[in-house]
């Protein structure tokens, strides 16, 4: 059971953005996508999430081709957290978190639902925000709320053995260091509970420290994938980013100025 992309190519408005990419998201592991601006990280995430259809190749969620899954079925396999639009109407934080609840045969009045929301609110450390209006929160706080929503979407109601996946597009932008660390801890915990995590990261040191595996993208291609020590090497980083980079092992530290 994995999310598997097999030799996918994608384009937007006729401009090729990804070519012949193959990748696997494994339950319980954190896979970081790194690479320079415009390398195709967000496009790859959209293809894996099913927002963008590849022009070639296929994506499989636990061996099921997503071309054969409708949007509702896809929602049960994976949740995505990205830069969301501002809310026009004045929803409360609680409303936004609860929007992540897929019915799963359990309605809102069920104890199951209440337990799930409570647990996720505690886990994401947003209990002090829960009764506030969403639009009055800061950018970082809104991010944490959307993260909680994405986590609630993956809540397992029955004793389903089907693996679920969490995809995050630069979740750490706008977060202060305390909330950055606490968000990373929650993501880690989610992975430990068997969720497969795909995370787009800018900070190479963070990727080196945090991810189980790293996929390096450059110009629409995967130029390296594997454990951080194998991918984040002086040679590869220098050629991909076109700046002198110095990598020191134990602990893996990347410096570029």
């Amino acid at each position: 059971m994995t999310i598997r992309a097999i030799s996918i190519s994608a384009e937007i408005d006729g401009i090729p953005l990804l070519s012949d990419m193959s990748l696997e998201i494994v339950p319980g592991e954190v896979l970081a996508l790194v690479g320079p601006n415009g390398a195709g990280k967000s496009t790859l995430l959209s293809v894996l999430a099913g927002d963008l259809n590849p022009v070639q190749g296929s994506v499989f969620y636990n061996k099921r081709n997503i071309a054969q899954l409708d949007v509702q079925e896809r929602a049960h396999y994976r949740s995505v957290m990205s830069q969301a639009l501002p809310m026009v109407f004045d929803f409360s934080v609680k409303d936004i978190v609860e929007m992540g609840w897929l019915h799963n045969g359990q309605h809102y009045s069920s104890d199951h639902f209440k337990t799930a929301v409570q647990q996720i609110v505690d886990q994401c450390n947003i209990s002090s925000l829960i009764n506030r209006r969403f639009n009055t929160l800061s950018g970082g706080e809104q991010k944490r709320v959307h993260f909680a929503r994405a986590l609630l979407q993956l809540w397992k109601c029955e004793d389903s053995l089907e693996a679920k996946y969490l995809m995050l597009d630069e979740p750490l932008a706008n977060l202060d260091i305390r909330h950055e660390l606490s968000l990373l801890a929650v993501i880690r915990k989610a992975a430990a509970s068997g969720i497969g995590v795909l995370i787009v990261l800018h900070d190479l040191n963070l990727a080196a420290k945090f991810a189980d595996k790293v996929a390096m993208l450059n110009q629409g291609r995967i130029v390296g994938v594997g454990v951080p020590e194998d991918v984040l090497t002086t040679n590869l980083l220098t050629s991909v980013y076109d700046v002198p980079v110095n990598v020191k092992p134990n602990p893996l530290t990347i410096s570029y100025y």
Binding site: D51, V71, Q72, R74, S82, A84, L85, M99, L102
Partner: peptide
């Protein structure tokens, strides 16, 4: 209200 893409990721056709 979350946006079209977000809604479709939550299973809205």
């Amino acid at each position: 209200q979350l946006g079209e893409i977000e809604a479709s990721r939550l299973g809205v056709d």
